[in-house]
Design a protein around this nucleic acid. Structure first.
Length: 270
DNA sequence: AGATCGGCCTGGACGC
DNA sequence: TGCGTCCAGGCCGATC
């Protein structure tokens, strides 16, 4: 495992990115010739209004009814040159934004990150963003709707969460953490309202706690100032296979579910 | 239409 | 030491 920026990591990046980008003019965008980014160079000549977040996406409205969309993928990070944090561009810089008062690099070892510019709100070419579920930390995340979404699908609850449709921003780490906390087996289907209510609360809790620690860093995830998140030492399920369950000591089991590594307690997660 | 699966991409871990 | 193989996974497109 490397990084997997999920909602807490992306939100931590957003909080540092917003003050550095809001109001700035993009003078030019330089791309790695191998990068398959969309029309991100269309950002050139436009001013950034703000940096928002939806799920794991960073959204930066530009003037002229354009919108810069950024996704960190697995290993993406934004770094600024000459900021005193020692950052120097390396072989993994995939895009460089020349701003009116700064130079920002997008670094991405595995190239899973995505950058593009679209007409404001036109997400037709970005299926996951188009079908993105509610923001978990707002009132939009409604327990009744969450239950209906989880009950409607025939998928197991964990893969269902990873589709981003029942709720936005939950990835592999926080799915395992929330399911453990809610004592729900990741294979479970058609959960009762009582259990989706527990999961609803657990998702909010693990995300809020991880944001307070500025996310989970294993290796590559870095905030804009280069600092790692501090949540890795607080994970109780993800990556803890074989360790005793903190609730009652049964060794945690790792399986592959929906093609993703999944760790859970076979005894207390039913 | 919803669900499933392979591919993308790379470096690090691991085995011999 | 060095090489080959496997693994990690968010998202997307193809297919069932």
């Amino acid at each position: 495992m490397v990084a997997m920026p999920e909602l807490p990591e992306v939100e931590s990046v957003r909080r540092q990115l917003h003050p550095r980008l809001a109001g700035r003019l993009v003078r030019a965008v330089h791309l790695d010739p191998q990068a398959r980014f969309g029309a991100v160079d269309k950002a050139a000549g436009h001013r950034i209004a703000e940096v928002r977040r939806r799920g794991k996406y960073l959204l930066a409205p530009l003037d002229s009814d354009l919108e810069l969309i950024m996704h960190l993928g697995m290993t993406g990070s934004f770094r600024f040159r000459g900021g005193g944090d020692g950052w120097q561009p390396d072989a993994y810089v995939r895009a460089t934004f020349e701003l009116d008062d700064a130079v920002m690099d997008f670094r991405d070892v595995r190239r899973f990150g995505r950058l593009t510019v679209v007409p404001t709100g036109d997400y037709a070419g970005i299926a996951t963003l188009l079908g993105l579920g509610p923001e978990p930390l707002t009132a939009d995340f409604d327990p009744a709707r969450f239950h209906a979404d989880i009950a409607r699908t025939r998928m197991s609850v964990k893969p269902a969460l990873l589709t981003q449709r029942p709720v936005a921003g939950v990835g592999n780490i926080y799915a395992d953490e929330a399911l453990w906390r809610a004592r729900i087996n990741p294979h479970a289907r058609r959960l009762s309202r009582t259990r989706t209510d527990r999961l609803h609360a657990a998702i909010r809790e693990v995300l809020v706690e991880a944001i307070a620690r500025e996310g989970t860093t294993f290796r590559d995830y870095r905030m804009v100032d280069g600092e790692p998140g501090r949540n890795a030492d607080f994970l109780v399920a993800y990556g803890q296979a074989g360790q005793p369950c903190p609730r009652e000591g049964t060794p945690l089991r790792k399986v592959v579910l929906g093609g993703r590594g999944t760790t859970y307690c076979p005894r207390c997660q039913r």
